[in-house]
């Protein structure tokens, strides 16, 4: 595959001042290579939610992205506590975020469902005490059936 852009970012733990830097950087790359604004927005929202999750719940982590001519793959991983009940975590409104996070404007329990809504492909691998990795793919053109 030609023209693959690969980037890796470190997501610092509990640092809200720079949370979102990775998503902001990816957003700029997508705009620069001419990806349509609606796809840029869907990608930005999905990645930002996942990045915020890593900051809040995962003690920080890493973001790895790969862009080719058809799609972007975003892998965000942390070595945090993992998700004990994934079905429950996927429910809108369910959150384990502490009040300190809610005061920052997050932790409403909308993150995972919002990622699912905006991604074309969304997978989570998680294990208690081992961490969580989310895989988000957004296609640049509508998927043909």
């Amino acid at each position: 595959m030609n023209n693959v852009v690969v980037r890796d970012y470190s997501i610092p733990a509990n640092d809200f001042t720079i949370a979102g830097e990775a998503s902001s950087s990816v957003r700029k790359i997508l705009s620069q290579i001419g990806v349509t604004p609606d796809v840029v927005k869907r990608t930005s929202i999905a990645m930002y939610e996942a990045e915020i999750n890593a900051v809040i719940h995962g003690n920080g982590g890493q973001a790895h992205i790969e862009i080719d001519e058809n799609k972007i793959l975003i892998i965000i991983s942390d070595q945090g506590p993992g998700i004990a009940d994934l079905d429950l975590a996927m429910q809108e409104g369910y959150s384990t975020a502490p009040d300190s996070i809610r005061e920052m404007g997050f932790g409403a329990g909308m993150g995972l469902s919002n990622i699912k809504k905006h991604a074309d492909v969304f997978e989570i691998k998680t294990a208690v005490n081992e961490g969580t990795t989310v895989y988000i793919t957004v296609f640049f053109k509508p998927v043909k059936n």
């Binding site: 809200f16 001042t17 949370a19 979102g20 998503s23 902001s24 930005s44 920052m104 404007g105």
Partner: peptide, 11 residues
């Protein structure tokens, strides 16, 4: 807080 600006950017 700065996340308001970041959220605005993403949205």
């Amino acid at each position: 807080n700065p996340q308001v600006i970041r959220t605005a950017e993403m949205m």
